[in-house]
């Protein structure tokens, strides 16, 4: 995991993808209402599955949704 990133998934994990592939950090972009949010997340190098940690989903992702949607 990049030391520059202060967002998302920092913890070491022994989880593997359901396809058996290893999860490694990848730069990904989440698109929401036409806005692009870039972040580094664990992704399966075999099938492309991306793990979005719960802390991110109910934290920053929810915050930007609220801002953009006036929730």
């Amino acid at each position: 995991m990049s030391k520059e990133s202060d967002l998302g998934f920092h913890e070491q994990t022994v989880w593997r993808c359901s396809c058996g592939g290893e999860l490694t950090p990848h730069k990904v972009a989440a698109l929401y209402l036409g806005n692009r949010f870039e972040i580094e997340l664990p992704a399966c190098s075999r099938c492309g599955f991306i793990l979005v940690p719960e802390s991110l989903a109910v934290g920053k992702m929810l915050e930007v949704e609220k801002i953009l949607e006036d929730k």
């Binding site: 806005n35 920053k60 609220k66 801002i67």
Partner: peptide, 22 residues
């Protein structure tokens, strides 16, 4: 302003404003 605020919050530069954006 909403889009710009969302990007600043995402990058951790500012705290999520409460109701200010509206």
């Amino acid at each position: 302003l909403r889009e710009c605020t969302a990007q600043l919050v995402w990058a951790g530069i500012i705290e999520a404003p409460i109701k200010i954006c509206c």
